[in-house]
């Protein structure tokens, strides 16, 4: 467990370092994730390895780690209440449009390239996927 956590912190540190040095506006952990992915691929990393064990354990409780930032919502409730309509509509509207844009673009391009997938159980007659 500690071995795996050490690797994860190490890759986060690498991410922070590269982000600082190259001055790109991506968070260090996100860069660290990309580096770790490359490392796991190159090493053909095994499922029983410490990084997979520690990573899987942490990800099971990913939501917990958002709580400290999330409680900040409480401190801004009055601001949110003041402009509730534009904030609410802009957030929900652009979230939905973004979701539609990403999902349909990806599925549409897959179909163009001739490799559509249907992973869900059940069957929709209208979609021509197999």
């Amino acid at each position: 467990m500690i071995a795996g956590l050490t690797w994860l912190v190490g890759f986060q540190l690498l991410g922070e370092l590269v982000v600082r040095v190259t001055d790109v506006s991506v968070p260090g952990p996100v860069a660290g994730m990309m580096f770790l992915f490359v490392y796991l691929r190159l090493r053909r990393y095994d499922d029983a390895g410490s990084i997979v064990q520690a990573g899987t354990a942490l990800l099971r409780h990913l939501q917990l780690f958002f709580v400290p930032a999330g409680v900040g919502v409480v401190a801004y409730l009055s601001v949110l209440g003041h402009d509730a309509l534009p904030i609410g509509v802009a957030m929900v509207g652009s979230w939905l449009l973004g979701l539609v844009a990403v999902g349909w673009t990806a599925v549409g391009l897959e179909r163009l390239l001739g490799r559509p997938r249907d992973d869900l159980p059940g069957h929709l007659p209208e979609t021509g996927t197999t």
Binding site: Q12, F37, P68
Partner: peptide
């Protein structure tokens, strides 16, 4: 509050890095 629970917030970084695991 935020500084009191730094111990929890800290893990968001390594957990984000760990998202490489399911991807792998």
């Amino acid at each position: 509050y935020r500084s009191g629970v730094e111990l929890i917030a800290f893990w968001l970084g390594p957990a984000t890095v760990a998202l490489a695991v399911p991807l792998h």
